[in-house]
Design a protein around this nucleic acid. Structure first.
Lengths: 134, 134, 134, 134
DNA sequence: GTGGTCTAGACCACG
DNA sequence: GTGGTCTAGACCACC
């Protein structure tokens, strides 16, 4: 699992880690039962404080996404895949909602939004596919 | 100018004030040369500390949205209206971009996004129109 | 006498008025014994609060630049012309000094300063001459 | 980093701090990536309130001079060094410009300015060299 | 430990 | 009346 972090983002590092794990589960990179990297391993890989990874994993356990398996570390729970997908969809719906509300209030038209969505989608789709190819 | 603040939001109050002022300029409620309410006045209206309003206004000055007219208060700068609209569009584009990127990474399809956008847009549009009617 | 004010400058309006009067005396536009416009007249002309002009004139009286002539208003004092010129020269010398000190500390060379002075001088000279022609 | 403040100056303290930081970056005392002292630390060192330092740092962030590294403090941005140097030259040019404009308006001649510049420059040059020798 | 937010209140210059 | 500066102190999230 690769972990791309943005240290200057206003989203906390631990939260970014949580999301990336959920991404990986949501799109099938991680499946139910798979082990996630150990806290120390991921901390080194991502050049991050161990506590930060620990907190992310703690949150994911609390959400039932990860389960602890005695002596071997943490693994993706059976319910995680479907749950991740639902969670993501709901989170996206919520953020989209506030985004659109602001767009309406600042006088932007539906057409502008639609074309923005289409343009960004195709741009990002290419970008993501390219990075996977690597 | 009305100022609706959400004290529970994770967006700082001063930032919310900035945005509302920009909204008001963007959609023509405030025009170039208009005075904004005094810091004290808005502070009372919004039930917020004077310094908080002052900070918002200071940021807006730094961004060239407001200009200080010595002893008489702050006014909307000539460039503000066009600038606000551009800024808003760009901000929305940027947030939409990260939103869509996450959607792609978590395995959501374009169709789902499109229908979400349409559904939310029409829902919000009614809501906003209703609140204006009041 | 024309009075060009910059309402967005960080120099107070009353101070700008003082300087402009001194300019006018320094370069011969106003001579010893000439009347300056009345407080109200100048306030209207310059679109400024009456108190502001009053304060400027008060300061100029305190400095002996203007003298009050009973019933007729304020006039340029006999000593003003030479004094204005000396004052200005000294003020310019002082500000030039701090400016050059910072230039030296930030590693700028004498040649750069000399060429800056020459370039700005000729640019401003044209500009000023043009505005007088109007 | 040393921070020399003048509490009598009419330049706000936070502004003085900004300048000193920029100066330190401009002349290489602080390099890209270096951490600046923490707000609390500098506040103690300079005998100033924490908020005052915080405001200076916040302004520097808004200008892109400093970047925040979550939980670890603030660091000099990669673009800062070149930017700081350009800023200083431009600041000097701007102040020279207003200085010369006033000189022209008050009837001072180019020769007088030139000799002033030469005289002050050589005087200050000696002074600065002497203080460095110490 | 770090910075960020918010409050409260004093003081000042300007118009 | 206006905004601007500074102080003091509380609380929070993050690492």
């Amino acid at each position: 699992m690769i972990c791309q972090l943005d240290f200057q983002s206003d989203i906390p590092i631990y939260e970014q880690i949580c999301r990336q794990v959920k991404f990986a589960i949501g799109n099938g990179t991680l499946r139910a039962g798979d082990h996630v990297p150990s806290v120390r391993e991921l901390a080194v890989q991502a050049a991050v404080n161990v506590n930060t990874v620990a907190r992310a994993y703690r949150d994911l356990q609390a959400q039932g996404i990860l389960v602890s398996i005695r002596g071997t570390g943490l693994a993706v729970s059976p319910e995680a895949p479907s749950r991740c997908r639902d969670d993501r969809l709901e989170m996206i719906r919520a953020r989209l909602s506030t985004l659109l509300r602001e767009a309406i209030l600042s006088g932007i038209e539906m057409d502008e939004i639609r074309s923005l969505v289409d343009a960004e989608w195709s741009r990002l789709h290419k970008e993501v596919r390219a990075s996977k190819a690597v």
